[in-house]
């Protein structure tokens, strides 16, 4: 029997029973907008992950990164996310047009807490909004506008346990196959060899906007 099946599946009550109840104060930190602290976090964050789902609920989680503050808070309920040069698969966009719900997790290097922002998004090509997202003289073609429903700081234990920001953790990187290896192994197609694909990555990485 494969590992992924056959185990006891818990329902909500059993799961809650094992997890325990949160402190009553914990829920108080959940805001329905971005307060000054959240705005400050986002204004200094160079990286976030964005979770989206299609109409059926199948999810994608994608990384977004740029200059700190690249996700622009237009006001306390509105975020603007640029679409920078990527692989053009557009998974997040095809999800958002089917299902507006998005979950964002913002990181600031050196800070163990992360900022969680949930909301509803749409994709736009509005000229003014794209102008505000111009970077290195390149204006993105698309932008994602997020109406904020929830925002709160997530505690730092996971980043403390993982020692994510510690320099000595970087020795892990050498154990990871190159991106060309990932691609070549996944594609298993003649002509797509890892070395060639790595060169494509290297070239592509020279052009960030």
């Amino acid at each position: 029997m494969p590992w992924r099946t056959g185990h006891r599946r818990l329902g909500a009550a059993e799961t809650r029973g094992l997890l325990g109840e949160p402190d009553p104060e914990t829920r108080l930190k959940i805001l329905d907008h971005l307060d000054r602290n959240c705005l400050t976090f986002i204004a200094h964050s160079p990286f976030c992950c964005m979770a989206t789902a299609d109409a059926s609920g199948a999810t994608d989680c994608t990384p977004r990164g740029d200059y700190p503050g690249f996700v622009r808070a237009l006001d306390e309920r509105t975020l603007l996310i640029p679409d920078r040069l990527g692989n053009k698969l557009g998974d997040s966009f095809s999800n958002i047009v089917e299902n507006p719900h998005v979950g964002l997790l913002f990181f600031v290097p050196g800070v163990v807490e992360t900022l969680r922002v949930n909301g509803r998004a749409y994709v736009t090509d509005d000229g003014d909004l794209r102008t505000m997202l111009e970077q290195d003289d390149v204006r993105p073609e698309l932008a994602t506008l997020v109406e904020v429903d929830e925002a709160y700081l997530h505690c730092g234990r996971s980043l403390l346990r993982s020692r994510l920001w510690e320099d000595d953790m970087r020795d892990l990187a050498q154990e990871i196959p190159s991106p060309g290896t990932f691609w070549a192994d996944a594609a298993a197609t003649e002509g797509l060899d890892a070395e060639r694909l790595d060169r494509l990555f290297d070239d592509g990485y020279q052009e960030l906007y």
Binding site: T40, A43, Y67, G69, F70, T131, M132, Q135
Partner: peptide, 13 residues
């Protein structure tokens, strides 16, 4: 009005 980041940052932070 359409700050590309720097002006908004200076004014806010």
């Amino acid at each position: 009005r359409l700050s590309r980041g720097a002006s908004a940052y200076v004014h806010s932070y």
